[in-house]
């Protein structure tokens, strides 16, 4: 039987959730026995190559590119998991929802104390994805099957959840593994 496939991506997150996944340490090698890795920032697969059983999403959506990647994951993954506070509720990046985007851009590219911008031009090249008016968490954009809280969820939390999903058993996490910080 073919191994289950797993894909992971980081949208508007800090990579801390991916780092927490790597904190399973030696169990990474065990995981490699259990699954086939599809697209992930830790390999060079740039677009999902085949149908995936599990998709792990870190981060919410702050630009159009995030939205496209998230939709692509939803389309190609049987089970989609929002990993961490950014994916499940926007997290720290969503603090920008409290101020207009234009003010954030102004501070970074016009008003900051070390800014050198004689032409007063904001980054606007077509190569750059359009920013969204606010930061969205994943289930505001697509249907999400599971939410793992934490900033980041601990390695043990991630391990327990992924193993349960792979074995098709209900994901029941003990109280100690469910934390929002």
């Amino acid at each position: 039987m073919a191994k289950p496939r797993i894909a992971t991506t980081s949208l508007a997150g800090c990579f801390g959730c991916h780092m927490s996944l790597l904190d399973i340490d030696e169990r990474i090698l065990q995981l490699a026995e259990l699954v086939e890795f599809d697209r992930s920032p830790i390999d060079d697969v740039k677009r999902i190559a085949g149908r995936c059983n599990i998709g792990l999403i870190e981060g919410g959506c702050c630009n159009e590119e995030n939205v496209a990647v998230l939709r692509h994951f939803r389309e190609h993954c049987d089970v989609l998991v929002s990993v961490g506070d950014c994916a499940t509720m926007g997290g720290v990046p969503a603090m920008r929802n409290l101020v207009p985007l234009s003010e954030c851009l102004r501070e970074a590219y016009l008003d900051g104390p070390t800014v050198h911008n004689p032409g007063k031009r904001l980054p606007d090249d077509p190569e750059l994805p359009l920013l969204l008016n606010r930061v969205y968490c994943c289930h505001e954009v697509v249907a999400v099957d599971y939410h793992l809280p934490g900033c980041p969820p601990s390695a043990d939390t991630l391990w327990a959840a992924v193993v349960a999903l792979l074995q098709g058993t209900p994901v029941t996490l003990p109280y100690g593994l469910l934390k929002f910080d």
Binding site: C62, L98, C104, R106, A108, G112, P129
Partner: peptide, 15 residues
């Protein structure tokens, strides 16, 4: 050839 950073967060302002 250019390396583009395509993400913007706005920490300096929302903080």
């Amino acid at each position: 050839a250019r390396l583009h950073i395509v993400e913007f967060r706005g920490f300096e302002r929302f903080i």
